[in-house]
């Protein structure tokens, strides 16, 4: 076995040893027991300024949309389908009438 082969084997052994030692050290460093608690929470809130003013004295237009006084969104979603149905019905009626008119004109021409 020549000198170069011996050097290569020595180098490989050193790398292998370094790897093994590193792994074992890192494992021993991060293996530990711990515990954690629940979250202990404190909520801070502000007093609503609206509550100090009589409701009757607040003009309706001055109530911002983002306040809790706005109507529930459910009301708005209920009216949307009705409007959509009405629009579709009107369009269908207009198309049907124009179709009838064109057909009547065609019959008259014939």
């Amino acid at each position: 076995m020549n000198k170069h082969k011996l050097q290569a084997i020595a180098l490989l052994s050193a790398v292998l040893c370094f790897f093994v030692i590193s792994v074992s050290l890192s494992r021993s460093t991060y293996a530990y027991v711990f515990g954690q608690s629940h979250i202990c929470r404190s909520d801070f809130y502000t007093e609503k300024t609206e509550s100090s003013v009589p409701e009757s004295s607040v003009p309706e237009s001055s109530v911002p949309e983002s306040s809790s006084e706005k109507p529930p969104t459910g009301d708005r979603t209920d009216t949307l389908p009705l409007a959509a149905v009405s629009a579709v019905s009107m369009m269908a009626a207009a198309i049907w009438m124009s179709f009838r008119r064109s057909r009547r004109n065609k019959d008259t021409n014939d």
Binding site: T29, F34, Q36, S37, H38, I39, T46
Partner: peptide, 29 residues
């Protein structure tokens, strides 16, 4: 001034949590 100027204008919170780690072998860590 009565407002939190954050995600919510009217609410804020302080949260706390405990964490305990074994003392043996972890003095410096």
């Amino acid at each position: 001034d009565g407002q939190f100027h954050g995600e919510s204008e009217t609410e804020s919170a302080i949260e706390a949590r405990a964490y305990a780690v074994q003392s043996e072998g972890t003095e410096a860590l």
